[in-house]
Structures are given as C-alpha cells and as structure tokens.
Design a protein around this nucleic acid. Structure first.
Lengths: 225, 225
DNA sequence: AGAGAATGTGCCACTGAGTGGCATTTGCCG
DNA sequence: CGGCAAATGCCACTCAGTGGCACATTCTCT
C-alpha cells in the first residue's frame, strides 16, 4: 500500500505576507477537508441512506483518517446536520442585535426571516439534502430537535439579558419561541417534501404560510364527538 | 463459574386453571424481568450517571443476558425514558376518546391532565428519576424530544380522523399541540428541579401554571434596543 | 534561511452499543 | 407424556466514538 502524499505548495502570495482572506494556509487546509467531509457525507448519505453509510465510507471518500473526521465533527449526525446548525448559529447572532420591539412572536419570526435571507447561496443546496435526510432518519430528527432546544435556550437567555431584569418572565419568552420554531419545522417539512426544485423563495413562502397559520390555530375551536 | 438457575415454582393456583390477573406465568415472568431491568437501570443511571453506566452493569445487576435486555427495550435510552413513554401512550389512548369540543388548545391540555391523573401511583417515582436524567443527559433529551414528535404526529392524525375530512387543516391542529407540549416540558423542567419531594400535586400545579402562561405569552410585546 | 513551537494528521488499540444466528431451556396445551 | 411456541443465553460481529502517541506540516521569531 502506497501512501499518497499531497503537498500543497504555496504558489500565490510568495512573499509570505498576511494570509489571504484572513485565513492562514493551515486554516484553509483544515477548512477544505472540513467541507470535503461535509460534501462527501451528504452525498453518500443521500445515495445509500444515513444508516447504511458507515463513517469509513465517508473518510475513505475524502482520503482522511477517522480520527480527523472526529476533529471536525462531533458525530455522524453532526456532519449531516451541519447546514441546519449554521442557520441556527446565524439566528443566535441575529437575535443579539435585532430590533426588540413589537410582539415577541413577530420579533422571533422576523429574525429568522432575516437570518434565512442572509445565508450563503451555496448553503441552500446542502440544506435541502440535510433536511430530507433528517425527515427520513429518526436519529437525525432527534439530534435536530435537541439542537433546536439548545439554541432555544440560549436565545431566551439572550433576549432576557437584552430586556434586563425587569423584563417579562422567561416562560413568556420561551413559549412564543417554541411556537415559532414549531411553525418553522412545519414549513420545513412541507418544503422538503416538495418534488424537485425547492428554492429559497419556496422555503420563504412556506415559512410565511406557517407563520400566518399561527393566529387562527390558537383560536381554533372544534366540536365533535 | 457456576450458573445460577432460578426455577420459579408455581405455588399459588395449583390446579393450573386460567392465568391469574389475565397473565400467564410466562408473561408474568417476562414482565417481571422487564420491570427489574427498568428499576435497575434507573437506579444505576441515577447513581453513576447515564453515560458512565454500561449496559453490562445493568444486565449483570438483573442477572440477565444483554440479548434479553434488547428484547425488552430498543436502546439504552429507551429504558431510561420508559416512564415518559408510558405517559404518552396513555395520552394517545385518551385522545382517541376524549370529548372534542371547545378550543383545541384546551382539549389538548385537558386530555393531558386526565392522562396524568390516571397514571399508576408507582409510576410517579420512576418518572421523577427518568426526568432528572433526561434533563441532565443530552442523548436522553434528544430521544425524549423525538418521541414527543412521534406522538404529536399520531395525535394529530387521530384528531384529524375524528373531525372528519371537513375538519380544519392539519397545521391548525399541529401548532396548538406543539405549544401545549412546550408548556408541558417547561412545567417538567421546573418540577424536576424541585429540591427533594416532587409529588404529583406539585407537577399538576406546575402544569397549570405553564398552561395559564400561554395566553399572555402569545400577546407579549417588548420594547427595547 | 533555520530552529523550535503549535497545530493538524495518521495509526492503533480499545470501549461500548446494538444485531444476527443458533442451540437450549421453559412454559403451554393437547 | 410429548410436541410446540416463546423466551433466554451465548457467541461472534459491525460500527460509532475515544485516547494516546509518533510524525508531518505550518507558523513564528530571530
């Protein structure tokens, strides 16, 4: 068995000045394998199914050791849900700076709309794949929900801190957020079930529908049995 | 190494009539090991922590093979969350028969209150332990949330079926349920953080508080930054 | 340019969850 | 008693994930 040694020769910026793009060569290399891992993982998971794909399949495809995989992602689920985590990371940032005025439910919704609009174009493609996997794979659903719950907690922390000690109780901040997330997940489900080309506009439309469904659903009254 | 053979001698009901309590000896035996496994698991998890306890610890304590464990529970998480699953199973049953009139949010809440009130007294002790573990262990949180989502889906199915084809859209049924569950989980968190003796009354009180917090939280308006 | 510190990577052995298969035991019932 | 079905035990196996250490690469300072 022959080792394949890939030596990256730094051709550009020969004078060794400040790293291009604010990233050193080392960091760029690491980022590259990180992305290669995510791409390969998403591709293989989609092709063969999440459970049927082993981590060895993934790391072999990227020609990297399993140890290296775990230095980049904390689990098999983690890499599959990376796009979703990026979105929520953006949301957490947004919620720190967004205007905090009006109905809290609207604030939460608006922040998500802004975050979504600000995601990188290339993010979308990965996100569809990730979402379809998550809908089809119980362990991914579980991890996704758990991550949502984590983010939810930090978001409530952030908002509570911004509103100061005289602000509303934490339940009051928590429940509307959970409702917003529930609507968002509903929108995601509808969106990822879309046949062939689920673009971002379609997702935004679904999200709008789900958000608009909130008020009537709260007032819904039934009568049977 | 000497095998320990535990032969269960049927002393009671010597005439071999119909199985007492509607359960045959075989079924009673199986149920007994099932419960012994749950008890041992919950005890060991609480003592040593969920992650630090291996399944071998559990099955050794019950003197049963690992294979037998997996014939009773689908995973390590499953046994730890058994009490919660029993509750939701009861909820699913309740929702099939409960009166379906009035605000849907109230219907969902009432059904949970009824289910909770109907749980076996011995259930409560296990449930506290299970909940405290779930709050402290990410993988348990994840599985708990996933199971909630599963139940949620079937509940919406049931209600939709009961309301017939001319009933409201599924989103309208889904969102209030998610909100109710969010409030319930909030109540659980508060309850399981209670110092020493969290009785059922305390849980019911917490639940009531959380449910009453829903309307004001939906109308909450903020103004800062 | 070169020495040495950081940092990233590969490899290897290991634990622990979960599964499949098969032989054996145990309760069931005619 | 004898055959049948269900439950169990045992064993070998796969795969996710971790710890440790040696090696390679990049960075930094002189």
């Amino acid at each position: 068995m022959t080792r394949i040694v890939t030596t990256l020769v730094t051709v550009i910026s020969p004078a060794g000045g400040p790293p291009p793009g604010d990233l050193s060569l080392r960091e760029r290399k690491k980022l590259r394998t990180r992305e290669a891992l995510a791409d390969a993982a998403l591709r293989l998971f989609t092709e063969k199914g999440f459970d049927a794909t082993t981590l060895d399949d993934v790391v072999d495809a990227v020609e990297v050791s399993k140890r290296t995989f775990f230095r980049n992602y904390s689990s098999k689920e983690d890499v599959a849900l990376a796009p979703e985590k990026e979105l929520w990371a953006g949301y957490a940032v947004e919620i720190e700076a967004c205007p905090l005025a009006g109905p809290i439910l609207t604030v939460y919704q608006e922040a998500l709309a802004v975050t979504l609009a600000g995601m990188d174009p290339s993010w979308e493609r990965r996100f569809v794949a990730s979402r379809r996997l998550a809908e089809a794979t119980p362990s991914l659903t579980a991890h996704s929900l758990q991550h949502c719950a984590d983010v939810t907690r930090t978001v409530v922390d952030t908002v509570a801190a911004r509103l100061g000690p005289d602000g509303p109780e934490r339940v009051q901040l928590h429940l509307p957020l959970e409702l917003m997330v529930a609507a968002w997940r509903w929108a995601l489900k509808e969106w990822s079930e879309t046949g062939d080309d689920p673009g971002r506009e379609a997702l935004q439309a679904r999200m709008g529908e789900a958000f608009r469904a909130i008020p009537p659903s709260m007032a819904l009254t039934v009568n049977a049995g």
